[in-house]
Nucleic acid binder design. Structure first.
Lengths: 109, 109
DNA sequence: GGTGCTTACCTAGTTAGACTAGGTGTATGC
DNA sequence: GCATACACCTAGTCTAACTAGGTAAGCACC
């Protein structure tokens, strides 16, 4: 059984932005999608998720609106802004460079 | 020009352990080696490095001994312990899983 | 001999992100 | 009636890395 990463090490924002790049989603669904897509290798704690969403909303990367989930429940739907899309590109690039550099040192060629 | 990563996001310990796996080195040389090897994509701040070395010494991953640098200066030489070597394997594996999961989500296939 | 650069180490205090550990309320299934 | 899943929220803590300093020795240079 895959032991999940304990710490998202600064990648949470990028992961959320990427999730929303596929279309608007509510918080709970973002967490579920990331966990499913990573085969539970990433675990998104709610105590990390919701503060991150506020942070990103304040920064203008995402916008929220109350609506309904697929199951008909009250849910806060988030979607990417133009600034957020730009931010996603920047963070993706930064991740590629960082992860590449670390991997070249840590992992066998 | 490569803009260096601002934050090592929890990889510093693994990077130090890996550096020492090639043989004993003093703190300053560890930083130089990592920066050179990553073509300056990783920057090791001294305010991060020395506290990390203490942390790792306390945990028994590395051992220190005063000696001389290649240039004949007083320097504290660190080397991996058996526990540290085991820790390096664990952290490398953890990094591979984590970076893989994040990359599969963020980066285009 | 003074000035500046590099080597080498160290530390106090701050920041930021994710965490733990709780809480609310609604709906569904048994 | 009770447990579980859905969906959101928050206070407080932890940790790693950061900024921004400092010490000291050796070297080159004029």
């Amino acid at each position: 059984m895959a032991v999940a990463a304990k710490d998202l090490h600064g990648t949470l924002d990028a992961l959320i932005l990427k999730t929303l790049s596929w279309g608007p989603r509510h918080g709970y669904a973002i967490a579920r999608w990331l966990e499913d897509t990573s085969a539970d290798e990433l675990v998104i704690e709610e105590g990390s998720l919701y503060p991150a969403l506020y942070r990103m909303e304040r920064k203008g990367w995402i916008e929220a609106e109350w609506g309904e989930s697929e199951l008909g429940r009250k849910a806060k739907l988030y979607r990417l802004t133009t600034v957020g899309r730009k931010q996603l590109r920047a963070e993706t690039e930064e991740w590629a460079r960082f992860a590449g550099a670390v991997s070249r040192i840590l992992l066998p060629a």
